[in-house]
Amino acid sequence: MNDLELWQQVQSGNEEAFQQLFYHHHTALVNRAYHFLRDEESAKDLAQDLFVKLWHQRLDLQIKDSVKAYLHRAIRNICINHLQKRKHVAMDDQPEREDYAPNAQQELQTIDLEKMVQVAISKMPEACRTIFLLRRMDELSLKEIAGELHISPKTVENQLTKARKILAQYLKPLLHLFWILLIPH
């Protein structure tokens, strides 16, 4: 049974179908939330809450194209709301935080590119990271991000420049290490 068929079963009150949908998507949703929040417990809580809402509102929700797309959009919006509530401020230009760069060398315990990129992302300031993830993972345009976060496109552009700088800071030492490894001993 595919996701849409499972969803139809869920709408008619089938708990087993609901459990199957949960097993299909929960891990990905928690991880998606974690990338935004960098807080494992909050990520788990928000993903659970999404499924709770899904069950209670199953009769009112109309999911026609993709259950996966719906769930990922939903967790993204839940995370954005959560971040905005937590900060009590809009994700506008925030004071520059420079604490990401000096530790880059220390983080370089491995040459695993994927891990290094994740470290770089985790070191981005919250607003900067949120905008970067919306751009990279959701492939939203500057205008769409601005609309989602209720900020100006110029602010989005500034934050993306900042995100690229942080990423560069973490990729640069990796290049040197990579180059050293290429030198025959």
């Binding site: 929960h26 991880n31 990520a43 788990k44 992302i121 993830l133 990279r136 993972m137």
Partner: peptide, 18 residues
Amino acid sequence: QIRKGWEVSAQAPNVISL
């Protein structure tokens, strides 16, 4: 390497196992 790093940044690897 830089381009590869950029591509990786679009992925959301599962860092939390549940």
